Amino acid sequence: MNHVTELAAAGTSVWLDDLSRDRLTTGNLAELISDSGIVGVTTNPAIFAKAMSAGTAYDAQVGELKTSGADVTDAVFAMAVEDVRNACDAFAAVHSASDGVDGRVSIEVDPRLADDREATVAQAKKLHADVGRDNVMIKIPATEACLPAITEVLAAGISVNVTLIFSVDRYRQVIAAFIEGIAQAQSNGHDVATIHSVASFFVSRVDTEIDRRLDEIGTAAALAVRGKAGLANARLAYEAFAADLVQDSRWQQLEAAGAHPQRPLWASTGVKNPDYPDTLYVTGLVGPQTVNTMPEDTLNATLDHATVSGDTLSGTGDDAREVFAALEDLGVDLNDVFVVLEHEGVEKFVSSWQELLDTIGERL
């Protein structure tokens, strides 16, 4: 037992929010699986930009892609797909032992498609086919334009990681898109027991944006609420998970047919403010049917000194609402916060992706 397996015993699966060719070829990922107890991996454009822009691990494949005449976008996806495929293989035993619930590896569609439903669906299906592993998850952003894409990709029998969720209202739309997607998959003749999904709810970025606004207000009452919004927002999302999914009658019929619930996944769990405990978004978000995807620093902190005290999510909705009421009383426009965060989230991934394309383009 370690603190990661303690989290698992309380219902929270721990995934690593990172992947690189070096992690795979050195055996580091296999070591983290066997020794630390991680049971999945998430990736995003920023992660691949960091991995592919440094060192020599990708040089041989870049050379092969240059010889074949691949364009830069195809080259980047070819390298990412190879990493994800190999990571899927590394998690094959975990995937089998968990009946497909864990052992998952996520790969994201081109972030520039965040407002293009049709192109998102087409690329999601292509990535799923290119990876060719049952335990891959395709990441699709929870933008308004892509909500129907989430439904359509699930309806095709493909497991989906819905990313860039910041508000509870948007999360409820994601839940509705998920239920509709599983219902359509069933109608399309797919075995719904083989389709899995997570909803990636971002945490630390909420505190970063709201703390900035509280600092501008500057009163003692405002400063007293700093660092509380991220947990409160996630806890209200968990309450919505219970109300809008678990207790939904349509979902219950699908679940009776073998469907698996879309688990809330806590993303952006690395603490941005050094004044806060480095496991703040780990120990405060423990509960049944959840996932926490962690950057390596947060994983190491969790293994070293996290205090896991069981379920810290169930029954926390009233306290979370008090935090939000205090923020609104102080004049924090929460709707604007979430609009800004979604817009910035897409922009940051597009920027990272473009930097990666530029770097690989030069190398090609």
Rank of each mutant, 00 (worst) to 15 (best):
G40F: 01
A60G: 13
K66S: 15
I47R: 00
I47A: 00
A54Q: 13
T42M: 07
I38T: 09
N44F: 09
V39H: 03
S53C: 05
L32M: 15
D35S: 11
E31W: 15
E64T: 09
T43L: 05
T42C: 10
K66W: 06
L32H: 09
F48E: 01
Y58T: 01
V62C: 02
V62E: 05
F48S: 04
I33W: 07
I38S: 02
T56R: 02
L32S: 12
L65D: 02
E64P: 15
I47V: 09
I33R: 07
K50I: 00
G55W: 01
L32V: 13
G40W: 02
V41E: 14
A51R: 01
I33E: 11
L65Y: 14
K50N: 04
A60W: 07
S36R: 04
V62A: 02
T43K: 12
S53V: 04
D35H: 15
I38M: 08
D59L: 05
S36D: 13
D35Q: 14
V39Y: 02
S36M: 07
Q61G: 05
A51V: 02
E31R: 15
A51W: 00
G37C: 08
S36L: 10
G37E: 06
S53L: 03
N44S: 12
S34Q: 13
A57P: 01
V41N: 14
A49V: 04
G37S: 02
N44L: 14
K66F: 10
A49T: 00
A46Q: 11
I47F: 00
L32W: 12
T56D: 07
F48I: 02
G55K: 06
E64C: 06
G37H: 13
K66L: 11
G63M: 15
T42S: 06
T42Q: 05
S36P: 10
E31I: 12
F48H: 03
A57Y: 00
E64N: 15
V41G: 14
L65C: 10
G63P: 15
T56Q: 05
S36C: 14
A54I: 08
A49H: 06
S36E: 12
A54C: 01
K66Y: 12
S36H: 08
K50A: 08
A54G: 00
D59M: 11
T42I: 08
G63L: 14
A46R: 07
A46K: 08
G37V: 10
T42R: 04
F48R: 03
